[in-house]
């Protein structure tokens, strides 16, 4: 029993616990903690990542409107309380680890694209996402072009023709076209101790 305790923000979990449940080593989790501390104190100094802080890190702009960033934030915020805690951050990032099986990455992405949380990617959701992506670019495609992209995709993916994409159809698409999952792997996560090396000085643990 020790009286010496470090005060950690809500949602902090011990690196040893997180390492036992994710592909990360204890040292890597300590490095991720340094990244987390940086992100979670950039606007509001409370050790939790707020949406504005997440957007600031992604876009260098805390008020950027982006459907996909909103969805990623929502997926990371597993407790659905509007902030990303350290444990949520590590567990969610672990899905992006190069060693995490493809089926976990695929399932995460399906849920991210299932905007209404119905268990299906519906035509109107697909249309909304295509529209959102095109608004990030200056392609200026017409409504008819968006409709055509969505229609072609539905013809290709919705093989049982029920007007929506289920997880089986999604898996078939991913198997045929693995590049769709490319955002789901972050090579940085294998080098996180190099990217955020300051931990080396305060690490208490050898791998």
């Amino acid at each position: 029993f020790s009286l010496k305790r470090t005060k950690h923000p809500r949602g902090y979990e011990e690196p040893q616990v997180l390492a036992s449940e994710t592909p990360f080593t204890v040292n890597e989790i300590e490095a991720l903690h340094n990244l987390f501390k940086k992100l979670s104190t950039s606007i509001i100094n409370d050790g939790l990542i707020h949406k504005e802080e997440f957007l600031l890190a992604l876009f260098r702009n805390s008020s950027k409107q982006n459907l996909f960033a909103d969805r990623v934030f929502y997926m990371f915020d597993r407790k659905r309380n509007g902030v990303i805690e350290f444990g949520e951050f590590v567990r969610s990032l672990s899905i992006f680890h190069p060693h995490t099986p493809e089926h976990e990455k695929s399932s995460f992405m399906f849920k991210l694209y299932d905007l209404d949380g119905t268990g299906f990617i519906q035509r109107h959701e697909l249309k909304k996402m295509v529209g959102a992506l095109l608004s990030e670019t200056d392609l200026g495609l017409s409504e008819e072009s968006i409709e055509a992209i969505v229609e072609q995709t539905m013809v290709e993916v919705d093989t049982n023709k029920d007007g929506k994409i289920d997880e089986e159809e999604w898996k078939e698409l991913v198997a045929k076209n693995p590049s769709i999952l490319k955002n789901m792997t972050l090579p940085y996560l294998k080098e996180v101790t190099l990217a955020f090396p300051s931990f080396v000085l305060d690490s208490e643990v050898d791998d």
């Binding site: 992604l58 960033a69 969805r71 990623v72 095109l134 072609q152 995709t153 993916v157 769709i180 972050l186």
Partner: peptide, 26 residues
């Protein structure tokens, strides 16, 4: 390929909002 010839999911995957690599850039 032009965007119109692409699968919608290929197109969507180009969103900056899905590129979490940015979190690691200093």
């Amino acid at each position: 390929r032009t965007p119109v010839a692409m699968n919608a999911f290929e197109l969507i995957s180009k969103s900056k909002g899905l590129n979490l690599g940015s979190l690691f850039e200093k």
